[in-house]
Write a protein that binds this DNA or RNA. Structure first.
Lengths: 346, 346
DNA sequence: AGCATGAATGACAGCGCTGTCATGCGTCAA
DNA sequence: TTGACGCATGACAGCGCTGTCATTCATGCT
């Protein structure tokens, strides 16, 4: 087997010099034609392009990285790939990458600050074109590394704390606060909060919920959370717990849409009329929310755009311009009131 | 700004030789201690490990790749990151990578065979540790490239056609066929098929549906599909279309769970009793299916395991062993009958 | 005409690491 | 005791590309 592989390994590898030979220029000119085409005469470029096409030349990124000390890779550091929110963000990132020669290197911290720090250290040591990290809650050492980084650093997901370099996201605090204020404005008397996977963003949503409630003069603290990862069935269970503990609950602000859908199903099972008897508000506004029956209210966030903008910020910096250090782009949120919080005539 | 970056770039970069100096061995010994620790004496290894830790040395993968002609990267070629199914698979892949020094390079074909071919060409030119590609429908040129590849190649998602090298997946044909047979066995008379984003896997599910129906003596071909990407709201719309066109429909086999959830919501809107009046069967068995009210029948597939196994196959090959060329791992599927296909006493 | 200027191109060296072969040394069987 | 062998280590060269400076040549100006 080893032998077979060896043989197959020996398929012709076209190098830049061979292209140069075929195009009758020096290797360095080919290199330039690839990186700064405008620094090479049109004729030379044409010959080089032809040679590249005919020989099927593909550049060797390792050699480029070694020689230039930079890579065309954006490091992305997120807690987990399972989380739906990050899946959307990743999609935005890949969309933002299109048309560039940039690649992505993804690392997951599994919500461990130490893993995150280590990951950042390794990524930075490879001199990436940029770094995209989730959140603002890095360890002090990780923050120090990021501050000293030689590449643009974009913190995604939230805005609020001053960014290390750049940031794009939204205020989860205010999003959740808008949600609970909507519930109260609709006339619900005893809203509760349901949360899973209580990462820093979730904590800030919870804070927004609490402050919104306190501002309305509510005294108790109707909150059910769990560190478990979020899911629809978890929404069912948490809602059941909530009702057992606090039967007077007449509305729930869910930390995300999964949970909200779970609450909807559980309410249906118990013949609770959603909207009239029970207000449900989700977070993120997954496409499914408007399709549900009844349609579910949610705080819409633009995860796709978050990823895209983060990449754009890096790309703008690479092309010389870009936002100055300290710039934070607030993507905002939009409350989408739907039938699930239409209390109607009671 | 350029100047600032320049300055920051000059942070100390520890090289292997510096570690060697500190550990009082030659660079090559450090290299060996990193790659084949058992080829270095315990004392030398201890000194080297200490030096690495004290200096904070991080290997330069570009230099390694250039010198050795291999990379520690598995290329992954999938149609799209948006598709939920691939998100699950990616999660499995990342899980499978844990504990190895392997990385992932992800490329998306956006369902274009030409893009796929180009992507495969570029990935292969970087001599990856392995390649994971979705499906069996590559262009002839792409197949030729993959056949000649010097690294393990795993085709994921489906089994059936003989693999180029290795494969892991399931038979979408038989999964869908099991679904429609279940519907018929439950006593539904006029099942229909709803499909979105009709990729090759979806086509095979459709074929399974059709054959299952024909075997039961059904004459018409009740199929509603669209090339649009799948979503819950699309499920609502397709189901509405279906009812308009073929009112006698009493069951739907959905190409995936999103659509099935959409059908559920639309049925609720129309006061159609799901289960008794309308059978619904999804595909993949997303966690949400069992939590829904009523719980939705689905054909369970293990996307997570698919990703994990694909990586395992590559890793096994790298460590010398592994399955022989031509091996296909059938992960199978499991029909999960639930309330949504309990026709009960009509 | 003579010179400065800038565009196009090239020579050279080296990025950090590893494959290949060679070396030194201790151990074992004959 | 001697040669053969295996183990731990090292020397050397080079992977494919680009940064830096140097060179050439045509252009526009005084």
């Amino acid at each position: 087997m080893g032998v077979i592989f060896q043989i197959m390994n020996d398929k012709p590898r076209i190098t830049l010099s061979e292209v140069a030979l075929a195009a009758d220029v020096s290797p360095i000119t080919v290199s330039r034609a690839l990186r700064n085409p405008d620094k090479v005469s049109a004729e030379a470029r044409a010959r080089i392009d032809r040679a590249i096409r005919e020989l099927g030349y593909v550049p060797n990124p390792a050699a480029r990285a070694l020689a230039s000390g930079r890579t065309d890779v954006i490091g992305v550091v997120i807690p987990s790939v399972s989380n739906n929110v990050f899946a959307d963000v990743m999609r935005g990132i890949y969309e933002g990458l299109e048309g560039s020669s940039l690649g992505v290197q993804l690392g997951t911290t599994r919500y461990s600050p130490m893993t995150e720090e280590q990951l950042i250290r390794v990524f930075l040591s490879q001199r990436p074109a940029g770094l995209i990290v989730a959140g603002h809650d890095q360890s002090p050492a990780a923050r120090a590394l990021l501050s000293a980084a030689a590449c643009p650093v974009v913190q995604i997901m939230e805005v609020g704390p001053p960014p290390i370099d750049l940031a794009v996201g939204l205020s989860h605090y205010h999003g959740a606060r808008a949600g609970v204020e909507h519930l109260l404005a609709q006339g619900y008397r005893a809203p509760a909060f349901l949360g899973a996977q209580m990462d820093p963003r979730s904590q800030r949503r919870l804070a927004g919920f609490r402050d919104g409630l306190a501002a309305a003069g509510q005294a108790d603290d109707p909150v059910v959370t769990t560190p478990e990862p979020s899911s629809v069935s978890l929404g069912c269970r948490l809602f059941a717990d909530l009702l057992a503990r606090r039967p007077q609950t007449d509305a729930v602000l869910c930390n995300n849409d999964d949970l909200a859908i779970g609450v909807l199903f559980e309410a249906q099972r118990r013949n609770i009329r959603v909207g009239a008897e029970l207000g449900i508000c989700g977070f993120n506004d997954h496409e499914m929310m408007s399709a549900a029956e009844p349609a579910l209210t949610s705080v819409a966030t633009d995860r796709l755009s978050m990823g895209r903008q983060a990449v754009r910020m890096v790309r703008d910096r690479l092309t010389g311009g870009g936002a100055p250090r300290g710039h934070a782009l607030d993507l905002g949120f939009r409350l989408m009131p739907r039938a699930s919080t239409a209390r109607g005539r009671v």
